[in-house]
Amino acid sequence: MKQASISKTLLLSIFAVILCCTVSSARKIPGCYAKRAALTQYWIPKEGDKDMTNDGKTVTLNGAKTKALKDHKGKIIAKVSKITYDKFQMEGTGLLLSGTMVNLGSSKNTFMKVNRKKNPYGLGSNENSLIPWVSVAANDIRKGTTLYIKKLDGVKLPDGKVHNGCVRVDDTGWSMGGCHIDFFVLQYKAYQILDTKLPEHVSVVQKSCTVLNYINSSVKKWAVLS
C-alpha cells in the first residue's frame, strides 16, 4: 500500500509539472516580438481639435454632423462629422465637445458612454481602465502581461517624467494584426512629441517588471477639464 501510494503521488507530481510547463509555455509571447515588432501609438481624439488621419494628414475634427454614434441598441449618443466618427472608431475612444467620452462597444460600429470619474482615460477591450504611457494594445498577447521595451526605457515623456520601458497589455486593436504593439499616449499632442523619439519597430520581451505612475497634475487636469 505504501509503495502504491508513493507511485500515485509521484505520478500526480509529474502531471502537475507537465501541466504547469504547458500553461507557462502557452502564456509566452510570440517569438517575433523579440526580433521585430511594429510600434504605433494611439490616443483619445477630441472633437474640435487638430488630429491626424490614418495616412498622416493633419485635420481638424469638425464639420457637418452627419454621422451618428449609436449604442448597441441603436440609440443615438451624439452626432458628429464623418472625419470625427472615423477617428473615434479608429482610436477606439473619443471625447465630445460636450465632455462626454465614448468608447467602442460590442463592435467597431457601436459605442458606449464612459464613466469619466471611474475611467478618466478610457476603457480597454475588457472594459478595464486605460492608463497613459502604461497601457498597450496587442492582439496576440494575454491581457495583463507586462512587457519590457528597451527603446522606450529612458524616453522623456511629454509630462516630463522618464519611462522605465515597462508596459502592460490592457487592450486589443481591431485594425491591426499580430506582432504589433500600440502604445497609449492619451493625446494627439503627446503623439507628436513621442513620434520623433520612438522607432517604428522595436524588440519586446515578456518580463515581470514594475509599471510606473506617469500621471502628474497636468494629466489629471486634462482628465477633469477636457
Rank of each mutant, 00 (worst) to 15 (best):
2 K>D: 15
4 A>Y: 13
7 S>T: 12
9 T>F: 06
10 L>G: 08
11 L>M: 10
12 L>P: 11
13 S>I: 07
14 I>Y: 11
14 I>N: 08
21 C>I: 11
22 T>D: 11
22 T>K: 14
26 A>D: 09
28 K>W: 00
28 K>I: 00
29 I>Q: 05
34 A>C: 12
36 R>V: 00
36 R>H: 02
37 A>Q: 10
37 A>V: 07
39 L>W: 00
39 L>H: 00
46 K>R: 12
48 G>R: 04
51 D>R: 01
61 L>V: 05
61 L>N: 05
62 N>K: 12
71 D>I: 01
75 K>P: 06
77 I>R: 02
77 I>D: 13
80 V>C: 11
82 K>C: 09
93 T>W: 04
96 L>W: 09
96 L>M: 11
99 G>C: 12
99 G>M: 08
106 S>G: 02
106 S>I: 13
107 S>C: 08
111 F>G: 06
113 K>E: 07
114 V>G: 13
115 N>C: 01
122 G>P: 14
122 G>K: 07
123 L>A: 01
124 G>N: 04
128 N>T: 07
130 L>G: 04
136 V>S: 08
136 V>H: 01
139 N>T: 02
140 D>G: 02
140 D>L: 02
141 I>H: 10
142 R>H: 09
142 R>S: 11
142 R>T: 11
145 T>G: 10
148 Y>R: 15
150 K>F: 00
150 K>G: 06
160 G>D: 14
162 V>N: 06
164 N>H: 08
167 V>C: 05
173 G>T: 04
182 D>P: 09
183 F>D: 14
190 A>L: 01
191 Y>I: 13
196 T>P: 00
197 K>W: 04
198 L>I: 08
201 H>M: 04
205 V>T: 15
206 Q>I: 12
209 C>G: 13
213 N>A: 10
215 I>K: 05
222 W>G: 12
